[in-house]
């Protein structure tokens, strides 16, 4: 019985963190599918989303649901600003992916250290929310994990519906096939990218709040998002179902490694998993074959 209990608890924790990874991985994948580069600045958007949510909770005493909405809005607008200022000029010049990556790296450094300089390196913790726990088959499962899993599932289902049914969603999918042709056929690429970055940012906001509640809020929490990036790559970057599958796989595997092997090895394990998987499947589980455009 004890064995099963530990197993079940590990599984649910893994699924919950996997759901949050998936939320973040979706942001990487969406941007990648259209602009064909890895947006390394996504991590700081998530980190700032966590700060936005924290301040909404503590300064304005908003309930967590409103604070999350606020974090989504804030992070979404931040992501749009990031695109307009750091990527749009490169896009108009059709620069190589290396330049986009350097620019993203710059945005990431700028924002992260801006937080250091202004707010400081303090750790903040959210007010206590979702404190309770459920008991399933004698296994104690944190309410937070359940909520995180449900919210992630709802958000990602919503996005899938949007991409498949809505006119704008179809335009986004068209642009991910070929941005130039989509533009020529009358899609306003500038507006479309604002929408894409807003969605990526809003998802980053939700993920940031969950990470903040679960762990804490601090300037280098963007480091966790590297693992979301790994999740996106494992699933096949650019593919939405891939991001979800990659996130869930990584979350569950990490959770089991942490429980049954060692917590210290967890992160090294994720990176090794990435390298090994890419050697076998260079485009990830569900990715299309990717040639770097030049």
């Amino acid at each position: 019985m004890g064995e099963l209990k530990v197993f079940l608890q590990t599984l649910i924790t893994g699924l919950a963190i996997g759901g949050v990874y998936a939320l973040m991985a979706v942001g990487y994948s969406l941007v990648f599918s259209i602009l064909n580069f890895s947006n390394f600045a996504h991590g700081v958007v998530i980190m700032l989303g966590a700060y936005f949510g924290y301040y909404m909770c503590t300064l304005f005493h908003l309930p967590i649901s409103l604070a999350t909405t606020g974090a989504m809005l804030g992070a979404g607008l931040l992501a749009i600003a990031n695109e307009k200022l750091a990527y749009r000029p490169l896009r108009l010049r059709s620069a190589v992916p290396l330049y986009f990556m350097i620019s993203a790296m710059g945005a990431s450094m700028f924002l992260e250290n801006m937080v250091y300089v202004t707010v400081g390196a303090h750790f903040f913790s959210y007010p206590e929310v979702f404190k309770g726990s459920l008991s399933i088959l004698h296994a104690k499962i944190g309410l937070l994990d359940v909520v995180a899993l449900c919210v992630s599932a709802v958000a990602i289902t919503g996005l899938t519906l949007f991409l498949n049914k809505a006119k704008l969603g179809i335009a986004i999918r068209a642009a991910s096939r070929d941005m130039t042709v989509a533009g020529a056929l009358g899609v306003n690429i500038d507006k479309l990218l604002s929408v894409v970055f807003f969605i990526a940012g809003a998802f980053a906001g939700i993920a940031g709040v969950f990470l903040g509640v679960k762990y804490m809020v601090y300037p280098t929490m963007g480091w966790i998002t590297n693992k979301a990036y790994i999740a996106a790559v494992i699933g096949g970057i650019g593919s939405l179902p891939g991001a979800v599958i990659g996130g869930i796989i990584l979350g569950v595997v990490e959770s089991f490694v942490a429980t049954y092997v060692s917590t210290a090895l967890r992160d090294v394990f994720s990176f090794s998993l990435l390298v090994v998987l890419l050697m076998v499947m260079p485009s990830g589980l569900l990715g299309k074959t990717l040639e770097e455009k030049v």
């Binding site: 750091a86 790296m105 710059g106 945005a107 450094m109 250290n113 801006m114 300089v117």
Partner: peptide
């Protein structure tokens, strides 16, 4: 902070 800003400005 300045390095980060500089990387963006140079790329742009």
């Amino acid at each position: 902070v300045i390095y980060g800003l500089m990387l963006i400005l140079i790329m742009v």
